[in-house]
């Protein structure tokens, strides 16, 4: 479904990604793990068009998307839940969700999408008239995911959904992501919480200083000594 081929990207004179290749098949859940500063967020931003790639190709469902801007890529069915949630704090919960359905096709299906999101995250329905900035961290993350679902994407990019959440909340959140997955969405997720995320996904990539170091099925990867020691603290 998504193919990233030998992508290079960076900021100014600095190169954050070197020749990164990765694929995600339809219906799959894939994780990218790696230490701080590895370039995970950059990779997500390149896929969603927020950071331009300097080399390589990006293909989604057979359509080349290389060089497209963020607002064009959403229209192809890729929704990005950015690092740090980035909800609109001054808008209400309902307005945030409405913005998720900004594009005309999503707008037409607004009612159904809203019902689905409220079904997945009932707490959002309760808080619909509340300012999004006043939600708790976990609720904000649910809102960010719900907002992404409103665009009726095929692929969802999740960047560190568990960041800054209490352990109990992390647990619940992963449960919710599992339910999102069960609805048939394809997911590419970046996580620091390696142990949890490897239980959630089918495959995983290990990214280090801008390069893919390892790739494999989640079960196998979690057995690897290297990964266990370095990222799972075992």
């Amino acid at each position: 479904m998504l193919e990233v081929r030998r992508v290079t990207a960076g900021y100014g004179a600095f190169t954050a990604l070197w020749d990164v290749s990765l694929t995600v098949a339809a219906g799959e859940a894939v994780a990218v793990v790696g230490p701080n500063g590895a370039g995970k967020t950059t990779l997500m931003r390149v896929i969603s068009g927020l950071v331009p790639s300097r080399g390589g190709e990006l293909v989604f469902e057979g359509t080349p998307l290389t060089g497209r801007r963020a607002h064009q890529i959403v229209a192809h069915g890729i929704a990005h839940v950015p690092e740090g949630r980035r909800i609109f704090p001054g808008l209400t919960v309902a307005e945030n969700l409405k913005m998720g359905a900004f594009l005309p096709p999503a707008r037409r299906a607004y009612r159904q999408s809203l019902e689905r999101v409220y079904g997945l995250f009932p707490v959002l329905a309760e808080r619909r008239a509340q300012r999004a900035g006043s939600l708790s961290g976990g609720e904000q993350q649910m809102l960010a995911i719900g907002r992404a679902l409103m665009s009726r994407p095929k692929l969802i990019l999740l960047d560190e959904p568990s960041m800054g959440l209490a352990p109990v909340m992390v647990f619940r959140l992963f449960d919710l992501i599992r339910r999102v997955r069960a609805e048939g969405y394809t997911i590419l997720v970046v996580e620091q919480n390696v142990r949890q995320v490897l239980k959630l996904v089918d495959r995983a990539y290990l990214l280090e200083v801008g390069r893919i170091r390892m790739e494999g099925r989640a079960e196998l990867l979690s057995e690897q000594d290297f990964v266990r020691k370095a990222y799972m603290g075992l």
């Binding site: 801007r69 607002h71 808008l91 900004f102």
Partner: peptide
């Protein structure tokens, strides 16, 4: 309106609104 709400949203977070599909 959608565009009116988008205007308010952009004033809070430009990039995030691009991710919603709005051309800044």
């Amino acid at each position: 309106t959608y565009i009116g709400t988008a205007i308010r949203a952009v004033s809070q977070d430009r990039d995030a609104m691009a991710l919603m599909g709005a051309n800044p």
